[in-house]
């Protein structure tokens, strides 16, 4: 039975799609049969980030409405064994907001895959609720910035209220990914540190991802950073993916500039 991870944030544009894409590739690399689903209905995005936009024939709405089978709609990544993708529809059809259909789809995915990542839309309505409805775990993505952190607190508070699993009395795992960390700004005291964020939010840290210019390059070319050589963000995502697969990977200090450079060299050696 597969494990469902909902990637959420509250505030938009913080890095959910980037995180979903890279972690899905990362767990696929670790040998998990992985599917990543674009739940941002009406705003298809993940296909471009994954470089699979030309292969989308059927989308999530087609599957939920019974116009296509799951296997017809799933796109198998040619570069990455074990990785599959299900696209969001470009139009927002109200029928998508049907809990029963969402459940049926997730159940089907759990049969077939080890890891299931759901890339949530921004906000706390509709699509967001559906991504956490049947999630086993949530990955909360946050930037070291006040409005993002505040919104993260709100969504963390909503998870147990909206999750089916929590209503059944089971625990929903909640993990934090802090991304777009700028070591120079932290050094200068102009960016909130990981320590402070963890003081404010009551949630376990899953990983820290530094600001990395290559993320833009990655979205330009449709090749996520985790597949780039010596990309600090890519390496961070690779560590997080390993942690998700139960591998004990020590936390790397991506916050102080000197330490970062040093550790990069070291991790480079073992790569």
């Amino acid at each position: 039975m597969g494990i469902v991870f909902a990637v959420i944030s509250g505030k938009g544009g913080v890095g959910k799609t980037t995180t979903s894409a890279n972690l899905a590739i990362g767990t696929a690399i670790e040998g998990k049969k992985t599917v990543v689903v674009d739940f941002d209905i009406g705003q298809r995005n993940l296909d471009m980030i994954l470089g699979l936009e030309n292969r989308v024939v059927y989308d999530i709405t087609n599957v939920m409405d019974g116009d296509a089978t799951l296997s017809q709609a799933l796109i198998k990544d040619k570069r990455q064994e074990n990785l599959y993708f299900l696209a969001a529809s470009q139009t927002k059809d109200k029928s998508v907001l049907d809990r029963e259909k969402v459940k049926k789809l997730i159940d089907q995915l759990k049969e077939e895959f080890d890891y299931i990542f759901l890339d949530s839309p921004a906000g706390i309505e509709g699509g967001f609720e559906h991504t956490i409805l049947y999630a086993d775990n949530v990955i909360v993505v946050v930037n070291p910035e006040v409005s993002s952190i505040r919104d993260a607190d709100r969504v963390i508070g909503l998870v147990d209220a909206k999750s089916h699993k929590a209503k059944e009395g089971e625990r929903v795992g909640k993990f934090l990914v802090i991304t777009r960390i700028d070591p120079d700004l932290i050094e200068k005291g102009e960016m909130i540190s990981t320590e402070d964020i963890l003081d404010i939010l009551s949630i376990n840290l899953l990983g820290k991802v530094p600001e990395d210019k290559r993320v833009i390059d990655a979205s330009n070319t449709g090749k996520p950073v985790i597949l780039h050589e010596s990309s600090p963000a890519g390496e961070a995502y690779s560590r997080i993916a390993k942690r998700l697969c139960g591998i004990d990977v020590p936390f790397v200090d991506v916050e102080s500039p000197e330490v970062r450079g040093f550790l990069q060299k070291i991790t480079g050696l073992f790569k």
């Binding site: 952190i149 505040r150 932290i186 005291g189 909130i192 003081d199 404010i200």
Partner: peptide, 23 residues
Amino acid sequence: SAHIAKDRLMIAIATDRQNSLIP
């Protein structure tokens, strides 16, 4: 400014949590 941000956040979030009635 990071320190100021943390202080402001602590207060804002405490208020948010208080106000967010029942989910």
